[in-house]
Design a protein around this nucleic acid. Structure first.
Lengths: 312, 312
DNA sequence: GCCTCCCATAAGTAATGCCAATGACAACGC
DNA sequence: GCGTTGTCATTGGCATTACTTATGGGAGGC
């Protein structure tokens, strides 16, 4: 078998015209060089060197091999360089999957932070809600997923994945203008909502809504379900019902004629980043995750994901 | 250090999506594959594989390395193929250096013989007389030298070179038409030539002539020396003197108005092929040397190098 | 639930590659 | 002429490497 070190040595021998000199330059002994060249000749089954003391040259086969060796070594050097660029965050792409609210808030700030420090790193983003987005991660279609989980119902921690908690996203009660509870400065108890009609979000959010209400001792009257949060907002505005909307989402859309107030006990969804243990070792992925964590810390310091919005 | 086998394995892993399958296809155990990939990742200091059981894929760095690996492996395969072509006598070039008489006789027949059996082998030829031609050989400018040595003066066997005796080339006495010795059917004794004026050839031939005459008990009267054998021929024709001309040379040029007869004791020069021990192992060189030996055997069977030429 | 497939790890063994020392050979200088 | 210096080849010993078998853990499928 031809080995890389054989090619390197061959190159040196051709350059210096001497086995000894080549060995010296490569930092090993002359017998080692002799044996390597012998092994090379054995592996290609033909003489490569013409060993004239002090003037060792190549046979025709040797010259051909040398040409290819130059090419191969250059290729390998290039490969190392390109890979080094990736490890040094001078190039590379991180593919993210995230749900819309995050894409509009945490994510841009984190990615911008990475981009400033490492202009060579690029990103792609697809929008996907947690169950599907984690599949993307598992099947290798992305490196990082931004997802959320509700405390209730207790969702099973995804297997084999790494979860990086980012921040908690409290849900707020959205009311139409003029609603009896509008304008309350104190948090509204869930108990006070047992007679309301509800607008629910995506299936998981709907399930979460149901369980939250059950905890409060009633079954919610869900008049409408949609995963389009702009639709939820409009339906609430029109007086169709009330809804629980995430602070993160509310911080990124215009409120329109919505009234908001806090809820007690506050339902919360946990925003997390997900990746695989292996991907967490990729520098660009690691840097992105760290930026996400940093931005989340900042958000928490600023008082949660999106300040409690004021209507209007 | 990146190794070839790492690249081969990487290729297989990328193709099969599994370390185990790749190991099986390459004929070694799964732990070996695992260790190799680990070594590769250590050598490039970054993760290469995303080890999802049953669906092992490559990281971005891995994909880059894979691209280069394909290129490198293809190069090496090409190198092997080209070298195999040389060892199988399907390509390659043999550079020869030879003196004119040989270039016109033995050499063409031998080369044509090689060419017929191995059409892919090519030749180059430079004309050079022995002392210089052997330098060409030593400095790597050619692979085979056709040269000659005289028995007297005893020339030192060239050091470190391989000599393949080809044939003996007897010298004939060339006389102008009408010379007193012209037309003799019996060999002429050197003794009978002590009063002649001589035309001598190249320095070595001249030295040989002197010694031959000294052996016969006289000092030759050398009227002219030239390494141009056509000039020698013409000078003899013009009655300028007599000369010793090689049978090989005489068999390849028109005699003109020359008269020839044998000499006793017959001065002989030995035609040999020279190469280096290392070059003798190169298939194309070996084949050419064998062809030269074969052709020489044929020449000897036909009664020496060039039949004793008849004048006219 | 068990079973199977995949990968990682550990320990032992075989092979490989290197070094130091020595030998042979040719070239250079005195 | 002969020693000296350079080259490369060879040998024996040692250290490293790289493979093997055996075992364990984790994920997915029936």
């Amino acid at each position: 078998m031809i080995e890389i070190r054989h090619l390197q040595l061959l190159q040196k021998v051709a350059a210096t015209g001497s086995l000894s000199a080549a060995a010296r330059e490569l930092g090993f002994s002359q017998p080692a060089a002799s044996q390597q060249m012998r092994a090379l000749e054995r592996s290609v089954r033909t003489p490569i060197l013409l060993r004239n003391p002090g003037n060792t040259t190549l046979t025709e086969a040797g010259e051909i091999l040398l040409q290819h060796a130059e090419e191969v070594l250059a290729r390998l050097a290039l490969a190392k360089k390109e890979i080094a660029a990736i490890t040094n965050l001078e190039s590379g792409t991180v593919r993210l999957a995230s749900f819309p609210s995050s894409s509009a808030t945490i994510l841009p700030r984190a990615l911008s932070m990475v981009s400033q420090q490492h202009p060579g790193v690029h990103f792609t983003l697809v929008e996907a809600e947690p169950p599907e987005s984690l599949s993307l991660l598992r099947q290798g279609s992305c490196e990082i997923v931004i997802g959320y989980t509700y405390r209730r119902p207790l969702e099973t921690e995804p297997q084999g994945l790494l979860r990086i908690p980012l921040c908690d996203d409290p849900l707020h009660l959205a009311l139409p203008r003029g609603h009896r509870l509008a304008g309350k400065t104190q948090p509204v108890s869930m108990n006070q909502l047992r007679r309301e009609r509800w607008i629910a979000g995506c299936p998981r959010c709907r399930r979460q809504l149901v369980e939250t209400c059950q905890d409060a001792g009633f079954e919610p009257d869900i008049a409408f379900s949609t995963d389009d949060y702009l639709a939820v907002r409009s339906l609430v505005s029109e007086g169709f019902g009330v809804a629980l909307l995430s602070g993160l989402m509310l911080s990124s859309v215009r409120l329109g004629t919505l009234e908001l107030c806090a809820v007690k006990p506050a339902p919360v969804r946990a925003i997390s980043a997900y990746t695989t243990p292996a991907l967490a070792k990729v520098p660009a992925v690691r840097a992105t995750l760290e930026a996400l964590a940093t931005i989340s810390r900042k958000l928490r310091a600023e008082g949660g994901p999106g300040p409690l919005p004021v209507s209007g």
